[in-house]
Write a protein that binds this DNA or RNA. Structure first.
Lengths: 211, 211
DNA sequence: CTTCATATGAGCATTGTCGCCCATCGCCGC
DNA sequence: GCGGCGATGGGCGACAATGCTCATATGAAG
């Protein structure tokens, strides 16, 4: 019996998913959550085989929740549910430890197949595009490291996205303002961005901070 | 028997809604559609009692579809389904001829109640907030403020969150940079914020832009 | 041992942002 | 018609952010 955790902030969607899963002979819904934080709590207490997480949820995104769950419990496999198949969260989801990525646009059978696949410890991709992307991602040696950014740079980006000024970041990290500017400048160059506004969007996409 | 049309671009959501409705003794799903245009076609051919339309769909939004359906067939009542209860589409939905507005965040029983309510030609509101808004809307003769922000200010905020500089916004809107700064300044004051970084987060929270 | 990445920091010039005050115009409600 | 608000803009000053170049120390990788 595959025990599944459902996390989605839309009650109606949750009901639909639950009915879908309960209709399968080999699956049962172990818990439901209506936001990311609750998803992490329920995942750690219920220890389901599969956690189905919506990408976008209040309090904590699906990406952040996936990181939390995977870092505490490798036995729970994460299946990410997204609105659009072409959104930018695909790679981030894999880096956050997700074993599968399914679009809500897909058929319900896709979701069921995906749950069975990731429950067995394998990886599920919902579209051909993503299959190609995945192969490229693996070939590029992205198997271990998760970032272009160094830990220090990540810290700075996080604070920038929290609306800290360079000076405030310098104080918070006990650095010179100049050093903060260096890190920020290096990050902008690495990501091909122009200003902190783009960085904020990046940080939110990556689930580094909450909107 | 209440005959229902389901229109949503997310297959998994469609399945959930269909199961939910088919489980009711007095309802049946007469048709499904995966975008707005198809929703109009199916509504006009099947003439369901209730058309449940997602606000955001490809090819034609739920709002446009509602207008089309209502202008051709007053017998079909439209129930609008939205992602967030606080999005700006509430008033527009009513103006487009919707008889009800339900958030996907609500419980499944809300949706079922809403379908029965609008099938009887009455109006359904899914949340207390919307009840209050509705009363105000009726009292004000639908001059309802959906935000603290004026339309112009919303435009500017949107562009700020898209990483436009003041100068670029001025060009895009054919304005002076000074005017853009005025709008931005007024918005910052209204929302009690300090800089554009906070505005970006606000805009993303509000769903004005994608991260 | 040398090379490379990371972290740290400076100087200087340019551009962007923000706060504050002000003015005009048009529209709407009383 | 008066008063308020929204949209439009100007001016000025202070501060923040960005670009560019450069320098140093450290530790890991070769």
């Amino acid at each position: 019996m595959i025990r599944v955790l459902i996390a989605d902030d839309h009650g109606i969607v949750r009901s639909g998913l639950t009915m879908l899963i309960e209709r399968q002979a080999d699956m049962t819904v172990a818990a439901e959550a209506q936001d990311g934080l609750e998803a992490v709590e329920r995942a750690l207490s219920e220890r389901p085989d599969v956690a189905v997480l919506d990408v976008s949820m209040p309090r904590m995104t699906g990406l952040q929740a996936a990181r939390q769950i995977r870092s505490h419990d490798q036995a729970t496999h994460v299946l990410m549910l997204s609105m659009h198949e072409d959104d930018g969260y695909f790679f981030e989801a894999l880096e956050a430890g997700a074993s599968g990525y399914v679009s809500k646009r897909g058929a319900d059978s896709d979701l069921i197949d995906a749950i069975r696949t990731v429950a067995n410890g394998r990886t599920f991709l919902s579209s051909r595009t993503q299959g190609a992307l995945m192969r490229q991602w693996l070939e590029d040696g992205h198997t271990g490291p998760r970032d272009d950014l160094t830990p220090r740079e990540l810290e700075v980006v996080k604070l920038i996205a929290e609306a800290y000024t360079n000076r405030q970041i310098a104080e918070a990290l006990t650095l010179s303002e100049k050093t903060v500017e260096s890190h920020r400048g290096n990050v902008l160059a690495k990501l091909g961005m122009r200003d902190r506004v783009e960085l904020v969007r990046y940080a939110i996409r990556r689930g580094l901070v909450e909107p």
